[in-house]
Simulated scan of single mutants.
Amino acid sequence: MMFYLYKIIKGLVFPPGIFILIFLLNFFIVKNKVLRILNLLSALVLYLISISPTTDLMKEFLKVKIEVNFQKPDVIFVPGAGLSDESISRIVKAYELYKIYNVPIVISGYKVEAKMMKSKLLMFSIPDSMLILDSLARNTFENVRNFIKTSKIKNFKNIIIVSSDYHFKRIDKIFKNSGLNLKYIPSNQIDWTAKTILDIVPSYASFSRNIRYLNEILGYFLIFQ
């Protein structure tokens, strides 16, 4: 009981919970009707993007189901995620797949990002000849567009794509009509399904995940990021 009480208090005292409380407090204090409505809406929106059930709903939207009809890939494609832990996790997964299939790896990112990813793979003793570097892609759209050009030049047909699980729906939309066979391998697939009462308590971890998911959903509809 004390554990749950501690988690609830922590969720309300630390951001974003404290800001939700401030918006609610302002709702009761201010007299201006418009400001009261704005504070209430702000509290509601911030609360919804700070809880795990919202993550589950967005993750369901971002799911991709693709029928794979090849046994061995021609290449492994790894789009970057900036200078972040996500990029590292994608590189580690690509290395694991390389040990299985022994096929080239295409690394796509922007300048330092792509070079960092390549240097990590070289540290795993993958030959430089097996690494294809695209250091001009500034976003997901350019990652995929540049890779499709490379695939035509290298005659790649069967592709394993390594990225974060929530990233695949946007990638798949950009690949549409490319004529390539795609298999998606998540680098960091995690089950965020709400299981306890604590999942409806706001937390920074849920807020951070939901912001990433919202970015993917916006990118899916705008398609140029």
Score class of each variant (00 low, 15 high):
Y4P: 02
K7M: 14
P15W: 11
I18H: 03
I20K: 03
F23C: 13
F23Q: 07
F28S: 13
I29C: 06
V30C: 06
K33T: 13
N39G: 07
A43P: 02
L48H: 08
L48C: 14
S50R: 08
P53W: 06
T54A: 10
T55I: 09
F61K: 14
F70G: 07
F70K: 07
Q71M: 11
K72F: 05
K72T: 14
K72V: 12
G82M: 12
L83R: 14
L83M: 15
D85P: 04
S87R: 02
R90W: 00
V92M: 04
A94Y: 01
Y98L: 01
I105C: 00
I105L: 04
V106T: 08
Y110T: 09
V112G: 06
K115D: 13
M116S: 15
S119T: 15
S119Y: 14
M123P: 02
S125V: 02
P127F: 08
I132N: 05
L133R: 03
A137L: 05
A137I: 04
T140V: 12
E142V: 12
E142N: 10
E142S: 13
N143I: 04
T150D: 04
S151E: 02
S151Y: 02
K152Y: 09
I159N: 00
D165C: 09
Y166L: 03
H167D: 06
K169L: 13
N177P: 03
L182R: 00
L182Y: 01
Y184E: 01
Y184R: 04
I185E: 10
N188L: 09
Q189N: 13
D191Y: 10
T193E: 08
A194W: 11
A194C: 08
V201D: 01
P202F: 05
A205D: 11
Y213M: 07
